[in-house]
Amino acid sequence: MQRKYLLIGVLLALIVSGCNMKGTSKEPYHVVYSSEEITEQTEYQNRSTYKIAIVPKVMNIPYFNAVEQGVMEAGDDLQVEVIYQGPSVANARQQIEVINQLVKNENIDVLAVSANDPEQLLPSLKKAEQMGVKVITWDADTAPEGRSFFINMVQDEALGRHLMDTLAWNIDEKGKFAIMTGADTAANLNEWLYWINQQHQEFYPDMQLVETVAANDDPQQAYTKAKELLAKYPDLDGIIGNSSVAPPAAAQAVLEEEKVGEVAIVGLSSPNPMNEYLKKDVVQVVTLWSPKKLGYLTVALSKQLAQGDLPYDNQEISGVGKISVMNDTVIMGEPIDFTKENVDQYDF
């Protein structure tokens, strides 16, 4: 009898408070307050804070330092815990060690990697997924089976062809040139190289590519390679830097060898380290996107993935803008050309 009165009291309380109960034979009953359903969620979905690990190719170069700024800003804005950790040199073995330690020790929800090698990282990424960690790539991709989606800065073909064009325009579409790249295993750098070469072969028959050299995204190696190119090819007309450390290294070498005006330099780099080189006409133009925005976007989409949602075409990302999505690739936006006329407008 006491239980009967208790049940009646509960039902009356629900009616008085404007609540009712809904359910079906297949679903548990739940309470509806003011016509808004409150459904049972898992502890994971209810969490206000996720833990996201962002792994660059290498630490402590200007490009990835700018990415880190965006990552930390997004962590604060979006109220997620972020870890930014990468290898001290740009190679797959060290990066695998970083990934394995993060997955083992940090209880992360999402792992976002700029891959030094598209194949060697796969076992570690697949193991992370098996342990319940969601995996994406950014900046440099792996094979598709290693991640949910890839965040690309720009469209690869457009960027590679544009880099070739910027050099051609500055040496009257003729003469000898070299390409300086980063790690020769990096998928993004190799894609850009492919399209640089395609543009060269299709449109610039009077230009001769003498050599492509890799410097492993190491500033000192890049500087050494640039000096070697200038010594080996005294009649060199231009250099394309296909990674962010190449243009400043080439610029310093050209300045020291007193070849300003003889060897044109273009390529990928942040505006801050290129500011004085551009203003002194050591470098003609450098091209990039905002690495800070790339870091911000990576955290934003990582949090979204942790909540169970994928990015979609024309999605507006606060602090970044509209993104494009093609199949399993996100494209952040268009590249920016920095010249002596506009370089002071940017700060990264």
Rank of each mutant, 00 (worst) to 15 (best):
R147G: 01
I196N: 08
T181M: 01
W195K: 01
F150G: 09
D141E: 12
L167C: 07
A92I: 02
A115I: 13
S114A: 15
V133L: 08
E211T: 05
L121A: 04
L121C: 02
D109E: 08
I151L: 12
P205G: 12
N152I: 05
A158E: 10
L159P: 05
G175E: 05
M131W: 08
R161N: 15
Y194L: 00
E191Y: 11
V89Y: 06
Q155M: 08
G160T: 04
N170R: 14
V154H: 01
T181E: 00
S124F: 00
L189E: 06
W192V: 11
N91D: 13
Y84V: 07
A215Y: 00
V133P: 10
E119R: 14
L209T: 03
R161E: 13
G86E: 02
L167Q: 03
D77R: 08
R93C: 11
T181D: 01
P205R: 15
Q208Y: 02
L111D: 12
D76T: 10
P87L: 01
N91Y: 09
T166L: 14
A90T: 00
P87I: 06
G175A: 13
P123D: 07
R161C: 07
Q95W: 05
V113P: 01
Q208M: 11
N216R: 10
Q198F: 01
M153K: 07
S148I: 14
G75L: 09
A183K: 08
V89E: 13
T166Y: 09
A178S: 06
R161L: 09
L111F: 05
Q120A: 12
H200E: 01
I136T: 05
T185D: 13
D117S: 06
A214L: 03
A214H: 12
S124E: 04
E211I: 00
Q198D: 11
N152M: 08
T166N: 14
Y204C: 03
S88E: 13
A128E: 04
K176C: 09
Y204W: 06
